[in-house]
Each structure stands twice: as structure tokens, then as C-alpha cells.
């Protein structure tokens, strides 16, 4: 890994050989080839927080695929990110039920509060904002998910209280 990659990484310099080894072990436990690509990318994103170009290259080499094919898959699926994420990812549900119950207002308030737009990360790397289509928690609409915690019946006023739970 080059220095420039280290500084761009969300792990803030902690990513090291151990993480790469864990990825390689995961790859080794799976069938070599295209069939395992998406599972490997899930693992890589879990380990690195996002999927930078050197990870694409590494995965491509290990699975015996052209890097263009890896990139094609990474860019096709929303779940895979090529940008570093903050320590906490705030997912605003934009499913129909949440939309009808005011998700747009929640997203606007959140963007204003953190001073970043959807898809961006705060300069202190504390929060990233993303949107998703339906967490299947429609009974609690509108819903936001911070990391894997679901917060239901969110209003603009409740945001401060929710965000304070995450340092």
C-alpha cells in the first residue's frame, strides 16, 4: 500500500497487514472466480469501510478476474462505496411510507444540521449521510438508521438527541 492510500482510508492509518490478511483468508475460503465476487466485496467493505482502487485490484488478482469487471460490479450496486465513510453512517429511509410521513423534511434538517449533503462525510469524519429505499420498518415511519440502530418516528427536532448518542 502506498502512503497516499493510507491517508485516504477511513481507518485513519490503522489499516494494516492484519486487515489484508483477514481479507485474503476470506477469499481463500471461497471458490475462486466470479461467483464469490459480491461476497468478497461485502467482506472488504466491512473491513476497510469502503472500496478504494487498490482493493479492487487486489480482489481482481485474487479471484482471477479483470479489474474492470470488479469495478463494474462495485459501481452497479448502491451498497458499495468508493468514498471513505465517517465513523457513523446515517441512513435516511426514503421508502414510500417514510416519504409520505415526511422523510424529505428529516433529510433536509439533517443536511442543514451537519452542513453536508447526502453522500458526503463531515470534515471530522464523525458522520456520513446516505439514503436508502426502505429498511422494512415502515410501521415506524419516518425512520433513520445510524449504523445498524433503527430510530423510528423521527422528526427534525429529535435529530440532535439521536446524533448525540454517537461520538
Amino acid at each position: 500500500m502506498t502512503d497516499s492510500n493510507t491517508t485516504a482510508c477511513a481507518c485513519e492509518g490503522q489499516c494494516n497487514a492484519a486487515v489484508w490478511n483477514e481479507l485474503d483468508e476470506f477469499i481463500a475460503s471461497h471458490e475462486r472466480g466470479r461467483n464469490s465476487l459480491i461476497q468478497v466485496l461485502h467482506k472488504a467493505q466491512e473491513l476497510f469501510g469502503y472500496l478504494p482502487p487498490d482493493v479492487h485490484q487486489h480482489v481482481a488478482d485474487q479471484l482471477g478476474l479483470p479489474v474492470s469487471e470488479v469495478l463494474g460490479v462495485v459501481t452497479f450496486y448502491h451498497y458499495f462505496s468508493m468514498q471513505p465513510r465517517g465513523r457513523h453512517t446515517i441512513n435516511v429511509c426514503m421508502g414510500t411510507a417514510c416519504y409520505v410521513r415526511g422523510a424529505k423534511k428529516v433529510l433536509e434538517a439533517l443536511q442543514e444540521k451537519l452542513g453536508i449533503k447526502m453522500g458526503e462525510t463531515t470534515p471530522d469524519r464523525r458522520f456520513s449521510i446516505t439514503t436508502q429505499r426502505c429498511f422494512g420498518a415502515c410501521g415506524l415511519a419516518p425512520v433513520i438508521m445510524v449504523n445498524s440502530d433503527v430510530h423510528g418516528r423521527v422528526t427534525a427536532n429529535k435529530l440532535t438527541g439521536i446524533l448525540n448518542q454517537y461520538e
Binding site: G33, N35, S36, I38, Q39, F76, H78
Partner: peptide, 20 residues
């Protein structure tokens, strides 16, 4: 595991996704 593509609910797209 899916990776966040609505079109993968379509059967042929879903199978492509399982194939990586």
C-alpha cells in the same frame, strides 16, 4: 447477500447477481 439494487428483485437480474 444483495448489495442494494432494486432491479435485482427481477428474477433474471437476481440470478446474475448470485453469479457475481
Amino acid at each position: 447477500m444483495g448489495a442494494g439494487a432494486f432491479v435485482c428483485g427481477e428474477e433474471t437480474a437476481l440470478m446474475h447477481s448470485i453469479e457475481g
